[in-house]
Amino acid sequence: MGNPEVRPSLPVVGGTGTAGAVAKQPDGSRVFLTTKLEKLLDAARKNSLWPLPFGTACCAIEFMSFMMSHYDISRFGAEVVRFSPRQSDLLIVAGTVTDKMAPVMVRIYEQMAEPKYVISMGVCACTGGFYRAYHVVQGIDEFIPVDVYVPGCPPTPEALLQGVVKLQEMISNGETRYQRALAAKRASQAQAGG
């Protein structure tokens, strides 16, 4: 019955060895596994990120290459680009953000539903880059929290791919801003309750 191996990307928890995690059919084949709902959701989230490209400048051109046939982000399950913040969970800020643009970016970020992640693509988005100037935001983390910074001016499409993979790892390990905030909240609740 099917592939007896458990797909490694599905996080299996509980019990020791296979006993607690994977149940066996009477004929010996393993058919289901137990996990926490949250872990399962994380696995789903990680493998189907829906990016919203907030492309403002030159980096957006490399973002296009990252989407297109040659580099092809769909290999990593994140090709469903949505321009509506309500339909996406990954904000990729690609390019310089100016003071005039910052309120727009914040508004879009706030319109996205949790859990949401942010990748800052390029040195401009990360730090302002070589525009130390009167109209340029010196890093988008002045305004919104960032999960992954991808350096480069512009980063190569490979670098951005790596940024997405890095974010996927972080989701598996519970390291994103959303997950950490959630864990902290639970801990404080447990403390208050206990």
Binding site: T98, D99, K100, A102, R107, R132, Y134, H135, V136
Partner: peptide
């Protein structure tokens, strides 16, 4: 420049790093 900007940035006496925040 955005509407909350003060001054005229290409004047020689304008400090290149002087920013002005625009609020929602």
């Amino acid at each position: 420049c955005h509407p909350a900007f003060q001054g005229h940035p290409l004047r020689k006496d304008y400090d290149p790093g002087q920013r002005w925040l625009l609020r929602e």
